[in-house]
């Protein structure tokens, strides 16, 4: 089953064409990598999926029936799509636990409140949402930071917290915008492990934007190379990285070398 189908997506900012009619599809359960040079439209595509940008043309079909472009942006997490940002967009002056709990927002319904309400929970200030947030923290292995302010924590942990906030919505499709940017080798390996574990534990399809080719090659099932808004090549990582055109883009023309 195809979880995401992009058809002829076109967006231009005044004169600058950011995505020039791209089409591809993502199968359910795979880790799909989007790579490309700076300004090739990877993050723009994410923002289109999240409805932060409004494409001029094209369709994004989710789960073979829902056109995402017909939904307002705050409905997207409810449908099961969560994302992280390249530059952290955390709530810096609240605790880690509260940050994760904001991610639970689409899942917290009034019905749930009345179902789980108990005097004991009120007295012990323990309830469903806290429990759920701790499950996420346990999965990421950062439970010991739960009462700290986000702004006090190192960058690598902040990245994980943002990942946790996205996971808290229990998404079917997770958009990760450069999860390993600014992290050291060890943290990058940890992220790679987590992404694989996420797929196994929660059954999430991951759409990944990344510059680190080692990471991409090691975890992605499918790679898509973008260059200035056009798709150069889609395929298995091994095929794609051997493609001469892709090598040109990443390493420059052979003549100049």
């Amino acid at each position: 089953m195809k979880i995401l189908e992009v058809e002829d997506l076109f967006i231009a900012f005044r004169g600058l064409v950011a995505l020039n009619g791209i089409s591809f599809s993502v199968n359910e359960g795979e880790i799909f990598g989007l790579v490309g040079t700076n300004g090739s439209g990877k993050s723009t595509f994410f923002n289109c999926v999240n409805r932060l940008y409004k494409p001029q043309r094209g369709k994004i079909i989710y789960k073979e029936k829902i056109n995402l472009l017909k939904n307002p942006s705050y409905k997207i997490p409810e449908l099961g799509i969560a994302r992280t940002f390249q530059n952290l967009e955390l709530f810096h002056y609240t605790r880690v636990l509260d940050n994760i709990m904001v991610g639970l927002h689409p899942r917290l319904k009034i019905r749930r409140f009345f179902k789980d309400f108990s005097i004991k929970g009120l007295i012990k200030s323990w309830n469903w949402d806290k429990d759920e947030a701790f499950k996420i923290l346990d999965f990421l292995g950062i439970t010991r930071f739960h009462a700290r302010l986000v702004s006090d924590l190192p960058y690598g942990i902040q990245k994980l917290i943002e990942l946790g906030r996205a996971l808290a919505a229990r998404p079917k499709l997770l958009l990760l915008d450069e999860p390993s940017a600014g992290m050291n080798d060890q943290e990058t390996r940890e992220i790679a492990r987590l992404i694989k574990a996420m797929r196994e534990e929660y059954g999430i399809t991951v759409l990944l934007v990344e510059h680190d080719m080692n990471l991409v090659q090691s975890i992605c099932d499918t790679l898509c190379v973008l260059d200035s808004g056009n798709i150069i090549k889609i395929g298995k990582p091994d095929e794609v990285t051997k493609d001469p055109q892709v090598i040109n883009i990443f390493l420059g023309e052979e003549d100049n070398a």
């Binding site: 942006s73 997490p77 940002f85 709530f91 904001v102 689409p106 919505a169």
Partner: peptide
């Protein structure tokens, strides 16, 4: 509550709030 967390998320970063499903 859910409401208050939505409020504080709008205060701290409205883009992240919107992406987390808060109707601004």
């Amino acid at each position: 509550s859910k409401l208050g967390r939505a409020f504080t998320s709008i205060r701290d970063s409205d883009v992240a709030a919107e992406v987390s499903g808060v109707n601004l």
